[in-house]
Design a protein around this nucleic acid. Structure first.
Ligand SMILES: NC(=O)c1ccc[n+]([C@@H]2O[C@H](COP(=O)([O-])OP(=O)(O)OC[C@H]3O[C@@H](n4cnc5c(N)ncnc54)[C@H](O)[C@@H]3O)[C@@H](O)[C@H]2O)c1
Ligand SMILES: NC(=O)c1ccc[n+]([C@@H]2O[C@H](COP(=O)([O-])OP(=O)(O)OC[C@H]3O[C@@H](n4cnc5c(N)ncnc54)[C@H](O)[C@@H]3O)[C@@H](O)[C@H]2O)c1
Lengths: 205, 205
DNA sequence: TTTCAATCGTTCCAAATTTCACAATTGAAA
DNA sequence: TTTCAATTGTGAAATTTGGAACGATTGAAA
């Protein structure tokens, strides 16, 4: 199947999350209109997104929750599980390490790396904190795909370089700074301040 | 001036952050090409974004860092400071409360609210944790604009309702669930899992 | 002084995305 | 059985976004 644009992928992941919620409430049928009400997106857009995959809806009825979820997951994730590592086990890094949301889902945090002697060797929520030097070895052994940056921004670029060197192909950067990486490596920046201020601009009259 | 699309606003906030970094390094002149190299965006797009505001660049020279930063900030933030509150001072909420990045910038976290008796009354990084019931009063008194949701997703909708009732006009939701609010209230969802998985999909061959 | 290379700002065009309109399907109700 | 309303899936139109091209400007070098 052709590669989908990131925007659609992100929305489809939202549909999957929403379908999981509906399943928990034992709602076994759902229409694009209902998904639209929950997610705040338009029903046409949702149907168009879904139509990128095989036909799974029935007119007048809607979608079977389980089937739609499975279809979307199959195309997007192909039963692969995402193995994450994190650099920096400080305030934010520890919060992420303690986050239970990953454990039942398609994401697993497999190792943490920190520069502070005081933290190395500790476990947080079953995940060990290693010295940074062991990153290449552990990332290869645990087949980690993506690394999270949660170190001070002054260390950001050097850590990014080391992540690339260690074989990661994707980086999620929580530090408020830009990093430079080879083209083969994808970066997502999550700057809370920018998000907050962007919303602030929106609500200013 | 006409209201800019969110995408442009977000990029301009990134330019502002970048310009601050350049100023710290005493780089008082910068070209769109250099900004492009740092941010990973195209120079044309950057010039176009900037041209939404008054002319401030000089051909052959580039932009004066200070002037460009001031121009962008004036249009976007008009010297207003964003006052934030947070609901939920657990793992993630505490990390955000401890985040020093806000203090020297245009964002100030003014209060936290939590349902746990054990946490109420404590201070984190100079910010007091209040019982949820005091939110309407404190939000009004402190002129808070935006509220952060950092409570378990089961409490998410009720907390959102209460935030709206308390007079907030913007919500940043870190819980992995959708919320329903009146049209006048803007919501930004930050679901880490979706971000991680979306990147994962991108890097899968 | 003249030429030149760097850079901005803008116009025009292409690509991507969203919305609109509607045919097709389907189970239920008349 | 026929009609009907709800819903999917999709082609076409509209809108938004990004990129290419290029003239205008400017300081520096010849
Ligand atoms: N705390 C938040 O809520 C928050 C919010 C938004 C962004 N951020 C960003 O996330 C990053 C981390 O924030 P924090 O509050 O957790 O900071 P922190 O100081 O609490 O933690 C930083 C951790 O990184 C470790 N570290 C330093 N250099 C390292 C290196 N070279 N390799 C590996 N580990 C290293 C430190 O030992 C420390 O444990 C910062 O860039 C911050 O701007 C944090
Ligand atoms: N920890 C993370 O890194 C992380 C990452 C992504 C998303 N999240 C999401 O952020 C939210 C918080 O995560 P966490 O790890 O901090 O959880 P947590 O359990 O550590 O903290 C939740 C806090 O919310 C408080 N709370 C509960 N009900 C409340 C209410 N009605 N009003 C006010 N406060 C209330 C609790 O007392 C607790 O202090 C969750 O929805 C989680 O899914 C967390």
């Amino acid at each position: 199947m052709k590669k989908l644009p990131r925007k659609i992928i992100t929305r489809v992941l939202l549909y999957i999350r929403t379908l999981e919620g509906l399943l928990k409430e034992k709602r076994y049928l759902v229409s694009s209109k209902q998904l639209a009400d929950i997610t705040g997106l338009s029903d046409v857009k949702i149907r168009k997104d879904i139509s990128n995959f095989k036909k799974v809806g029935r007119p007048r009825i809607g979608y079977k929750t389980v089937d739609l979820k499975r279809t979307l997951e199959n195309y997007l994730l192909q039963n692969n599980k995402l193995h994450l590592v994190i650099f920096g086990a400080g305030n934010l890094g520890s919060a992420i390490l303690k986050y239970p949301g990953f454990h039942r889902s398609k994401v697993k945090l497999v190792a943490a790396f920190d520069a502070s002697k005081a933290k190395i060797g500790k476990m947080i929520n079953g995940v060990r904190i290693y010295p940074v030097e062991r990153a290449p070895e552990i990332i290869k052994r645990r087949h980690a795909d993506i690394g999270i940056i949660a170190v001070p921004k002054e260390r950001c670029q050097e850590v990014a370089d080391y992540m690339v060197l260690s074989g990661l192909h994707g980086i999620v950067n929580f530090a408020p700074c830009s990093i430079s990486v080879p083209a083969k490596v994808q970066v997502r920046n999550m700057d809370f301040t920018i998000e907050f201020l962007s919303l602030f601009c929106d609500i200013q009259k």
